[in-house]
Design a binder for these strands. Structure first.
Length: 372
RNA sequence: AUCUCCAAGUUUUCAGAG
């Protein structure tokens, strides 16, 4: 059981819910930890229904089980259900409160997060960080700084937030000085400093930091590779990719996307075909290349071959039709898509305004359930 | 390194700025 649990949770941490399920299924017996690990693997996929099914199937629940289900709600964007769970569960601990705070924070309910934070019976460093990050996401630098001053305790995540907050507001030197003065560093803080330089257009600075990092992981490598690619240095990006010891699926997807972005469809396709494992982002990345080049037939063909398309796939096809001025097909996509998000609506509105005139576009605008 | 809460990377729309 111990071995099976270890492997299951290992897959959970790498966001491989199917593999976690596979290992789980081969185990001769399960304890509550096995079940919780499986639930955790499901939680990360954002599929709340699936997670709830597991929850209902489990022979028993404990505090960790409930906390994990709150997290599942967070990932699926269902704050209301998280609230319901929070009310319904038989007991709560510090993690419960933090998980609920995180539900508000991740889903952009800043006011709720603030209010909830005030109500918390005890606030540990995770709670402070969660609230602080919510402010960072909202671009509120002054509030971030204020919180930072008031915090009774800090850890590496705190410092990372502060770097990100400064970088996001164009204060690169402040970000660097935060980094210079922080008491502890790890691969995440290092990578966020690299990202700080890159997001401010300072490629040279980013590379310098990257080269001096004591340790790098998949994310560090991908961060720098993507920056090079976006800067148009595709071959340099590929060179770094080849030298990288840490190539996970995200890194591979980034290479497909890089080629696609610059219309190097042969390279993109070749890379795509060479990948032993793909996910929906891989397919979408290649499709985006066809779309950009106006290759409608190829995009359609790819779309029909995706094992499991998602909202992005649909949005891509909608945008592809719009770009090729096929308003009818665009509209058909829009009507047929299983779920419409802000991208879908904006895309449809743009399609009308570019191909049909302002009146139709305005009609869409009026009907939009959400806007930005 | 057996489970739950906080920080960094990849794909889709439009605008603005340069």
């Amino acid at each position: 059981v111990l071995m099976g649990n270890t492997i299951t949770s290992c897959y959970a941490q790498h966001e491989k819910s199917l593999d976690a399920q596979r290992i789980f299924d081969t185990m001769p017996e399960w304890d509550i930890i096995s079940w919780n690990s499986l639930l955790s693997a499901n939680a990360q996929t954002g599929n709340l229904l699936c997670a709830r099914q597991k929850f209902d199937t489990m022979p028993k629940h404990n505090l960790v089980t409930w906390n994990t289900l709150i997290t599942a709600s967070t990932y699926s964007g269902n704050v209301e259900y998280a609230e319901e769970l929070f009310q319904r569960m038989p007991e709560r601990d510090e993690v419960t409160w933090n998980a609920m705070l995180s539900a508000y924070a991740h889903n952009r309910h800043l006011e709720e997060a603030k209010r909830f934070f005030e109500e918390m019976p005890s606030k540990n460093v995770v709670a402070w960080n969660t609230l602080m990050h919510a402010y960072v996401e909202d671009g509120k630098l002054e509030e971030v700084k204020g919180l930072f001053e008031r915090m009774p305790c800090r850890n590496a995540a705190t410092w990372t937030c502060l770097i990100e907050a400064n970088a996001g507001n164009g204060h690169l030197e402040d970000a660097q000085s935060v980094f210079d003065n922080m008491p502890e560093r790890n691969v995440v803080t290092w990578t966020s400093l690299v990202a700080a330089y890159l997001s401010n257009g300072n490629l040279g600075g980013g590379k310098k930091v990257f080269d001096s990092m004591p340790e790098r992981n998949e994310i560090s490598w991908t961060t720098i590779i993507v920056a090079l690619a976006r800067n148009g240095d595709l071959d340099q990006a590929k060179d770094l990719y080849d030298r990288s010891p840490a190539k996970d699926l995200v890194a591979q997807n980034a290479m497909v996307a890089a080629y696609a972005r610059y219309g190097r469809l042969e390279d993109a396709t070749k890379f795509f075909d060479s990948m032993p494992e793909k996910d929906v982002t891989t397919w979408n990345a290649l499709m985006s290349g066809y779309k950009k080049e106006g290759l409608l037939k190829e995009a359609e063909e790819l779309f029909s071959r995706i094992p499991k398309g998602d909202g992005v796939s649909w949005n891509l096809m909608l945008a592809a039709y719009s770009q090729c001025k096929d308003l009818d097909k665009a509209k058909e996509m829009f009507d047929r898509m299983p779920e419409k998000d802000l991208f879908s609506w904006n895309s449809m509105m743009a399609a009308y305004s570019q191909n049909a005139g302002i009146k139709n576009a305005k009609d869409i605008f009026e009907k939009m359930p959400c806007r930005d």
